[in-house]
Computed example of a mutant assay.
Amino acid sequence: MSTQPDLLYSEEEEALRSAVRDLLADHSDAATVLARVESDEPHDRALWKNLAESMGLAGLLVPEERGGQGASHREAAVVLEELGRAVAPVPYLTSAVIATEALLGCDTEEARTLLASLASGRTVGALAVPLAAAPGAEFSDVRASDGTLIGRVTAVADATAADVLLVPTPDGLYAVDATASGVTVESQTSFDRTRPLAAVTFEGATGRLLAADVAAPVRRALRAGAGLLVSEQLGLADWLLTETVRYTRDRNQFNRPVGSFQALKHRLAQLWLEVVNTRAAARNAADALATGSDDAAIAVAVAQAYAAPVAVRAAEEALQLHGGIGMTWEHPIHLYLKRAKADSIALGTAGHHREELAGLVDLRAH
């Protein structure tokens, strides 16, 4: 008999949230993030070291016997909520979730060794696929011949921060050191500077085989990434709603708070309902992934189809309701808008996930 998922946060998850939020408040406030994304080094390596090594969060999804913390997707989702609230420029989703999940789907000694290294936080990994790649996508941009890789992949998220690249080819999944001979990582113009993109070119680079069957580990990685991305989108939307409510209470117009105007109350109430629904969808997806539910693919598709538009709308509403100050470069709202927009096409668009959901529940249009 199947059991109903528990969507409430446990005491341990709330304690984890508090610890991560305190760290981000001290080391990744809005002014710090704004300054960093305008620099030549958008990734915050010091913050990553605190999160990944000092707190051990890079290994949440990795079993203890394989060098990790032995937690689950529920705990990783809490971390991503808080990282979303701070638009923190760290490669947590790409390394601690997507690359880690790909390695968990491999059964070779090379993969086990690399997995322990990623779990320690001392090595950053990136799956060399476009950020827009959805679960189930096929990849043939890079070819392998006797372990030598040739090809080019564009729009790879956090590739500039990666120490090792996991490269899908028709002949298997390979690991390649980002600084190896024959590998070029070239920064690309990114709409969201807190998660920079890069083009990766392989010209005779030597790869180490992780799995001969590339489809299963890559599908696992992208599905987990899509499912937990919803928690990041939830964090974005929740921060935007909270800040907008606070601002409309404090800002006066015609000798009264603008938040007291009926029209704005309705807009904020509608947004609150959508954020609450997003939380339910995000928690359900994280729980389904954590428990290995047979309905995990459905839970992820539902959550992604719903969350992306909500995060974008929350950012647009926040921008408008903040008035003139929201339009300035000094205010952090533009960071949240850019992240929400970038996330809306990451790991499959809402439309893609709706189409996938229709197939999963056999409700395709004819």
Rank of each mutant, 00 (worst) to 15 (best):
T123H: 01
E64S: 08
T94Q: 12
D107E: 14
A269L: 13
A282N: 02
L7G: 07
L209P: 06
A205T: 02
V214H: 00
V218M: 00
V167W: 00
A15Y: 08
V276D: 12
Q4N: 03
I325L: 12
T94Y: 03
A342W: 04
G207C: 09
Y306D: 05
S231H: 10
E53W: 07
E186I: 11
D40Y: 05
A269H: 12
M1Y: 13
G225V: 09
G225N: 03
A263E: 15
R17N: 01
D287V: 13
H334N: 15
A77W: 06
L319Y: 10
L173K: 12
V33T: 14
E38S: 11
A290D: 06
G59Y: 07
H352G: 04
S260K: 11
T160I: 14
V90N: 00
E82I: 06
T248L: 13
E186Q: 15
A198N: 02
A290S: 14
D213F: 02
L321G: 06
A315F: 01
A111M: 11
R36D: 10
Q270T: 14
H331S: 11
G351Q: 15
T194Y: 05
V185R: 09
V90S: 01
E11D: 12
V129N: 00
V183Q: 03
A25S: 13
L197Q: 03
V218K: 09
V156E: 08
S190M: 01
R143K: 15
V164C: 11
Y92V: 05
L319C: 04
V142E: 04
Y92W: 00
P42Y: 08
A99Q: 08
A346F: 07
R143H: 15
R279W: 02
E186K: 13
T94W: 01
V218E: 08
H353M: 08
R17K: 14
Y306A: 09
S120F: 10
A52I: 08
E243I: 01
S120P: 07
A126D: 00
L165P: 08
T349H: 06
A71R: 12
E330M: 14
L357M: 08
D44P: 00
Y9R: 11
S39C: 10
